[in-house]
């Protein structure tokens, strides 16, 4: 893209929010920012509620994962406690990638992304909006497959600790995944590129998630897993911050 094009793009994003704020008076900047974020998330949720494209694909894929792992590992009562945390997280990660792929493919194919970028909102609001949408889709799938795992493998997975770990892991996953998904749609290979980019970077989340889920299943106290918890929270904070800082560079056009 040419230098002048970039400058005008910058100017557009820099000026417009102020004008917009001036029109909608008596709304604090934080509130108006939050409103924009939620508007973008809501847009994704609504279109998903209409089509159910992403959600159904993610859910069926997650189910298939469970069956494939069942046949591959022959999950019996003696080994479920050891293997199921891993199976659960691989299922989450694989179905998550499926959803992330669609997240920007839809935007790019129908030219919606250009529309979004023209809208008078900060780029970071677009990132947060998309990220929150992905987080919600993944969480809904997780909330359905978790009881399923409990029934199929007879394990007490509905543990508050496990729920928090899954939330933190999903947050880190969608924080990095949303950014990479925005990059992957622009590549020639598209859907194939995202897992290759994402999996090696996301590995700490997967390891910490598996370890902590296993720990909670074994009744390990949280105090003994402090390092994992810190790693998970640290990953979320660090990568959310960097994704926020670099998203501008990915969507500038």
């Amino acid at each position: 893209m040419s230098e002048s094009g970039r400058v005008t793009a910058r100017a557009r994003t820099d000026n417009s929010p102020h004008e917009w704020n001036a029109q909608t008076t008596r709304v604090s900047p934080a509130k108006s920012y939050l409103r924009k974020v939620l508007a973008i998330t809501w847009k994704d949720v609504i279109s998903e509620l209409r089509t159910r494209e992403i959600f159904s694909a993610m859910f069926v894929f997650a189910l298939l994962c469970v069956f494939i792992f069942q046949f591959a590992f022959d999950l019996q009562a003696e080994n479920t406690r050891v293997l199921v945390p891993g199976v659960l997280w691989v299922t989450i990660v694989f179905s998550g990638v499926l959803g992330l792929n669609r997240s920007f493919v839809l935007e790019a194919d129908k030219g919606c992304l250009d529309g979004l970028l023209l809208a008078p909102v900060d780029r970071s609001a677009i990132y947060f909006g998309k990220m929150l949408g992905n987080l919600i889709f993944m969480s809904v799938v997780e909330l359905i497959i978790l009881p399923l795992f409990m029934i199929l493998f007879n394990l007490p997975l509905w543990h508050p600790g496990i729920l928090v770990v899954i939330f933190l892991g999903t947050l880190g996953f969608s924080a990095v995944g949303t950014l990479f998904s925005a990059m992957a749609v622009n590549t020639r290979t598209r859907e194939i590129m995202l897992p290759i980019l994402l999996f090696p970077v996301i590995l700490p989340v997967l390891i910490a998630g598996v370890r902590m889920t296993g720990g909670f299943l074994d009744g390990t106290a949280l105090a003994e897993m402090q390092n994992w918890a810190r790693l998970l929270v640290g990953f979320d904070i660090i990568f959310l911050a960097i994704a926020l800082m670099t998203f501008d560079y990915v969507v500038e056009e």
């Binding site: 990095v176 660090i238 990568f239």
Partner: peptide, 11 residues
């Protein structure tokens, strides 16, 4: 690739 290069090293 610059964005990915940053993520790659920090992870």
């Amino acid at each position: 690739s610059a964005v990915y290069g940053i993520f790659a090293f920090l992870s």
